[in-house]
Computed example of a mutant assay.
Amino acid sequence: MPQYLTPGVYVEEVPSAIQPIAGVGTSTAGFIGTVAQDVTMPLIPGRSGVKADGTTKEPADFYTRAADGKAVLVTSWDVFQRNFGKLGAGNSVLGNAVYGFFNNGGSRCWVTSVADIATVENVKAALTGFAAIYEIAIVAVPGAVSAAVQNAVLDHCENQYTQDRFAILDGQPTTTLTKAGIQQCRDSSYGAVYYPWIDLGLKGSDGAVVYQPPSGHIAGVYARVDTQRGVFKAPANEVIRGALGVQTLLSKADQAGLNPDGVNVIRQFGTNTTIWGARTMGGAEDPEWTYISSRRLFLYLRDSIDRGTQWAVFEPNGPDLWSKIRRNVGAFLTTVWESGALLGDTAAQAFYVRCDETTNPPEIRNLGQLVTEVGVALVSPAEFVVFRISQWSGPASS
């Protein structure tokens, strides 16, 4: 404390007990894919691309392809091309996925190229690189449909050190309309699977449509919905920009056999290719996390509170600290409730924060721990909108 020697009035600055918790980002994606070594790279602006003799290419005039295994921050389609080449045979699947991400509303993603996405060791190495990039909230390996690779992505999202991520998985490009035929990886509330693949207007040498995996485009839809509405809004009943159709047209009856099993169907309604499902792969054994929006909102809350309360580490563990924790977390959750993400007419109905002597008895404090209990009432999407209609003879005459 300062020492006062002369009589008078002294004004001191006192740090506020409220240290605002900032919400973390929810829409930065991490993509893993394959890029050919001889992919066509774009020309550096101002360069000619040819040597002095005018007959051969000048390699130094072109951008250099990013090395395999290196995570690159991509903030636009142009940045992607400067690192991974022009869209074409050399990076068709990954390139179309990233283009679809930006076209559907994405703004930031990290991209790692590997030699072969079908080799689980390659994908695991890339995921290890993603672990240190804290802003990644969505993970996708466009076109990877093997159970081993998809399970590796789910393991990454569920890991205790990266337990703030959600996996978007591509269903099998099949016409077998069963969960076992479409989803061959294990169930997990940390991921969602989408079916069928989509038509982007690409055709092979034989003139047949070359369908593309939807995960990159859907990651962009997640980002768009997060920005326009919030992470608590289910990323469904949303049009996939750039998609002209689907590989397999599905009816309402077809979806009735897939939706309860957590397979999110992409439906064609007129000219619109629309995401018509909002479920995780949590399964019947994990009904608390049936919906994507519930799981992703909870990830957002958990990560935001985690990062926003790091200042409390090594603070004296007593009533003053407990009070600050309650105020800080309560202020953050009030903002979340006001956005419409939590259920309740009042903040008290929407959440509670308990941090006092009941959660921190002497035996807990002696272990160096501070325990706070937080409960939130999540809003579930209106997946089934039901109207009950009956005949009415009109008001009785007086």
Rank of each mutant, 00 (worst) to 15 (best):
S76Q: 08
L250H: 03
T75H: 05
R47I: 05
N159I: 01
Y222M: 07
Y190K: 11
E363V: 11
P214F: 01
N237E: 14
L244C: 03
L370W: 02
Y211V: 02
V79A: 12
D164R: 00
I240M: 06
W392Q: 15
A29W: 08
R186A: 15
A180K: 11
T40H: 02
N96W: 02
F31P: 01
Q212C: 05
V11I: 12
T26K: 03
F102V: 03
S393N: 08
I18S: 12
D116G: 04
D254V: 06
E158R: 08
A36Y: 06
S397N: 09
D68N: 15
T112C: 09
N259A: 15
G85H: 06
I136M: 06
S294M: 07
D187P: 02
K70R: 13
G262H: 05
E58A: 14
P316D: 09
I218D: 09
R241S: 11
E315M: 11
Y222V: 03
S92K: 10
G308W: 08
T346W: 02
K324D: 14
I136T: 01
Y190P: 05
L73A: 09
G201Q: 02
L333F: 10
P260Q: 08
I182P: 01
Y161F: 11
T26I: 08
W110E: 05
Q160W: 11
G129N: 12
Q369N: 13
V79Y: 07
D199P: 01
E121L: 01
A256G: 07
N83V: 01
H217A: 15
A89I: 10
N328R: 10
G69Y: 02
V123E: 03
E383R: 13
C109D: 07
P381H: 03
A52S: 12
L343H: 13
K324R: 10
L378I: 14
Q247G: 11
D345G: 15
N366A: 15
A284F: 03
S188A: 07
S339A: 10
I305Y: 00
L202Q: 09
I305L: 04
A256M: 07
